[in-house]
Simulated scan of single mutants.
Amino acid sequence: MRNIWKHSELIKQLAFRDIATRYKGSYLGVLWSVIIPFLMLTIYTFVFSVVFNARWNSGSTNKIEFALIIFSGMIVYNLFSEVANRSPGLVVGNVNYVKKVVFPLHILPVSVVLSTIINMLISVAILIIGLLIFGFGLHWTALLFPLVLLPLILFVLGLSWILSSLGVYLRDIGHVVGVLTSALMFLSPIFYPVSSIPNEFQFFYKINPISYVVEDTRQILIWGNLPNYQWIAIGTCLGLLFSFIGYKCFEKTRRGFADVL
């Protein structure tokens, strides 16, 4: 944390540059960060609520509510998937920084996590606008969203440090991560409630950190219920431990980056 705070200004510059570079040269620019979530939301809502005729256990048949429920889960999942998919090529794609002895390479994953969070906030704003427009209201529990998201942020930060260092030595790791993140989307309760998971598969839900955050996000943003504080406490401690391990792995392996690249 001391090292991150020391380079906080540089991290912010890299994060905003990353956002600007992502949409550089496109006609719609940052608007794509709004258009893409809407398009994916429309597709998933049509497939699951119309084609498969899926319904949530809330007892409502309102397709708008179903869409907002899915969207809230997608917001959390996209934070994880974007960081995970970009991390393996992070150091490899910034060879110039590796050659600079004085450049703090460990802040590259931090800047990616920060830019992803900023991009995610646009989707959160869309969700809030949707809740207000369609009469679902905005609950005071929405203020707890940063607290609910904290365990996942710590987890993806540690994961980004690990994957970015592995990506230097194992170039195939990027393809493996892409497959795993796609599978995890359907193994997490994004398109279905936890109660619909058979008992024999509940174990996979319990070891999936995304599941808890997805459920708590819906509870506080859509239904106005309090989150699972027990998981937040345990998840934050585990996230801190995992991010510490990830940082140590990155620092241990970075000594060979210049030789490999």
Rank of each mutant, 00 (worst) to 15 (best):
G25A: 09
Q230I: 14
N119F: 02
Y247Q: 03
K248D: 07
V92L: 13
Y23Q: 07
L121K: 06
N57E: 14
H7K: 10
W223K: 13
S26V: 00
N94D: 02
V260I: 14
L14C: 06
I222L: 15
G135Q: 09
D18H: 03
L131F: 01
E65A: 09
P88H: 06
S164H: 08
I107S: 04
F103M: 04
L41E: 05
I162K: 00
V110D: 08
V91N: 02
H106W: 10
M40V: 13
N53F: 07
E251I: 15
L154Y: 03
F257I: 07
I11S: 11
N119D: 10
V214A: 04
V213K: 10
Y169M: 05
I222M: 08
A142V: 12
V102Y: 13
I126A: 10
I207T: 09
T21D: 15
L184T: 14
I75A: 02
M120L: 12
I133R: 06
G29D: 06
Y229Q: 04
M185K: 04
C249P: 01
F145Q: 09
V110T: 12
I153H: 05
S164Y: 06
C249Q: 13
Y247V: 10
G93C: 07
I153Q: 04
V213A: 04
P37E: 10
M1F: 12
N225E: 14
A20V: 13
K6R: 15
Y229E: 03
L127G: 01
F242L: 14
V76K: 08
L154D: 11
Y77I: 08
V176D: 01
A233D: 06
L147F: 15
G158M: 08
S165P: 02
L105N: 00
M74R: 10
W231Q: 12
Y229S: 00
F242Y: 13
N199Q: 14
I197K: 07
L163I: 04
L150C: 09
I126G: 05
I4A: 12
P151W: 00
V30H: 12
W231H: 15
A183S: 08
L41I: 08
F16C: 01
H7T: 00
Y192L: 05
T236I: 01
K100V: 15
P193M: 02
S123F: 05
T253W: 14
